[in-house]
Amino acid sequence: MKPEQRKPFSKEIIHIDDIEQVCNRIVAKLKTDVTKNLQRRGAIVGISGGIDSSVCLALSAKAFGAKNVLGIMLPEQDSSDDSRQLAEQLAATYGVSTLVEDITNALDGFGCYERRDEAILRVIPDFDKKVDKAKIEIKQNIAENIPAIFSITVIKPNGDVVSKLLPAKEYLQIVASTNFKQRSRMSMLYYHAERMHYAVIGTPNKHEVEQGFFVKYGDGGADVMPIGHLYKTQVYQLAKHLGVPQEIIDRTPTTDTYTAEQSQEDFFYQMPFESMDLIWYGWEHKYPAEEVGKVMGKTTKEIENIYKSFERKRKTTEYLRMKPIF
């Protein structure tokens, strides 16, 4: 689209006006993709009590009927307790059957926890894995023009916090170990999909897909991704329209991967979804930084740096979206 043809940048620019129509279109496409293109007769959805998987379950129930959808909860020892309760509430809302597959033993078998804790201990020697909570997070300001680097943060039972920049070796080991979680979940989802001749519905949204906030062959391993083109605020619009329980809509999106509580904003995105959606749109559609800055209450320089950060994220995570090369 030529610059003179596009709408002036505004905070409403990605708001979906006809939500019913968008919803129907996604449902129709999902139905065609699964039944015609993939030749499968239903849907498996991994449900975590988060907004994305909840919307995917609701869309699947609409597309295939509740009886042809199975929601699977895949907790492990670090999962938060309310995830399961919310996932059950969600499934009940749409009349979808559920299964619980605790993957803790599988992860233990892979050495997921041991390998992760061993790397944390090398950086923070007094880390006590029995009582301390740990997470990795990005502490830099996204508006500063430098690539994001992760820190490890350990929270002691008395509330004391120790945080250190993660060296390359330990960062890679922690990520590689925790990725067993998403990959084990994917294996289990495919077990059920194959035994039932169903398709696995992937739950990543547009940001997760494009910024590479997913694990290759983990949560990125799925047959179809019905919300992969939607901004997070649009996913919330869909959630409201589809009647997703309010507790799920109100919950702060978390990674539910590390022992310490961690929002997706702290972990990866470095800014609130409401702003990120709009600035990403501005970047993707080549709106001048000055125009976006005026609407978002930021300087042109800040927007330029955020644009650069998006560009870096998309480029450095290209590997995750690539198919095997042959």
Partner: peptide, 25 residues
């Protein structure tokens, strides 16, 4: 890129024993 920066920090530690903290990044 970001991994390149992380490896650079590792190199600075090995070559010059220079440690980098969060606020110096």
């Amino acid at each position: 890129d970001s991994m390149g920066l992380l490896f650079l920090i590792e190199f600075l530690g090995e070559a010059f024993q220079v440690e980098v903290s969060d606020d110096e990044l």
